[in-house]
């Protein structure tokens, strides 16, 4: 099974595609899902084959916190970072409570993201 370094869950197709290209340029593997349901199905089928999940809060079919809760049920140890345009302090606290380890605002700083990924890969989660 191919290992995916970063799974991007974001409904803004162009944003997700461009971020994925920048990750690939840095020789990491990425995968994009545009809605919560598809992402959860993929995670269920590929347990343990993803290092980091980047999750947007505004998805067309589910709210991000619900997706986060479901990811943690399927795969409790996978690191999930939230990336949002307009997340509130309430959202941030809720995401932390549900197990997100990072709450980031768009636009994403690619260098910081790579530092996070490298740190995660040095300390495997499962």
């Amino acid at each position: 099974m191919e290992h995916i370094d970063i799974l991007i869950i974001d409904d803004e197709e162009k944003f997700a595609a461009m971020l994925a290209r920048r990750i690939e340029l840095r020789e990491y593997h990425s995968k994009v899902c545009h809605d919560g349901k598809t992402a959860l199905q993929w995670i269920e089928k590929h347990l343990g084959s993803v290092s980091l999940i980047l999750l947007d809060l505004q998805l067309p079919d589910m709210y991000g916190t619900q997706v986060l809760e479901d990811i943690k049920k399927i795969h409790p140890t996978v690191p999930v970072a939230i990336m949002t345009g307009h997340g509130s302090e309430k959202d941030k606290k809720e995401c932390e409570r549900l197990g997100a380890f990072k709450f980031m605002y768009k636009p994403i700083n690619i260098d910081s993201l790579m530092t996070i990924l490298e740190h995660i890969k040095e300390v495997p989660n499962d």
């Binding site: 803004e12 162009k14 307009h86 768009k106 636009p107 994403i108």
Partner: peptide, 20 residues
């Protein structure tokens, strides 16, 4: 405002890709 932020995020990523 969410829509505008999304647009700016795409432009920002594209500019970042050009930089890469």
């Amino acid at each position: 405002s969410h829509e505008i932020k999304n647009i700016l995020a795409i432009i920002s990523e594209t500019a970042g890709f050009l930089n890469d």
